[in-house]
Amino acid sequence: MNASAWHMLLEGAWTTVWISAVSIAIGVVAGLVIALIRLARIPIVDQLLVLYTSVARATPLVTLALFIFLSAPDLGLDLNRSVAGILALTLNTTAFNAEIWRSAFRNFSREQSEAAMATGMTPWVTFRRIMLPQMVITSLPGLVNEMSFLIKGSPAIAVIGIVDLTRVTNRISAVTYEPLPPILVAGVLYMAIIGCLVWLQRLAERRANRLAM
């Protein structure tokens, strides 16, 4: 592999990282919002969200990415590839994150919020200062695990023509006629990225143990 092949690989890695990072950031917040809405148990809205979660968890990312990219013009939307890719990854990861947040809510002890109310905190301050920080800490290991899954699923966006870390190996071997080296290097780069997340997850787990009283 020559210098330009390395350069292309790193560019592909960058594409994978930034598209995943944007999807993760939106997905974590959107998951929390959905979990909060589901707490309110609004009829119809609740059922729709249950349906969304169930379908999103069962739909392959490749299929979802194609669906969004190809049918956007039908719906009068003009999405470029990157936006379609981010949308697909986000719709998928949000469903998983919502479940992680929801279980943190369910397991939150009522006594904790009672202690906060007793000191005169309003429900909003109680949520912001007592509930949310604890839920972030307990959810973080699960959320980071889901981030690893998102990176592992991200090659799906290659199907709509985004040149990510996986797709770029095709581009390189089309010139060099040696497919094996770029694929192996891409594999190592993926392992480096996901290795970081696994390490982060361990840190998060150690912090979460502090809450176990």
């Binding site: 592992k152 996986t166 190996t169 094996l180 694929i183 891409a186 993926y190």
Partner: peptide, 16 residues
Amino acid sequence: MLPFLILAYLLYYGLP
């Protein structure tokens, strides 16, 4: 720690 597609690439494009 690998995406599934990389393994599929390895078998389909790499093994030859």
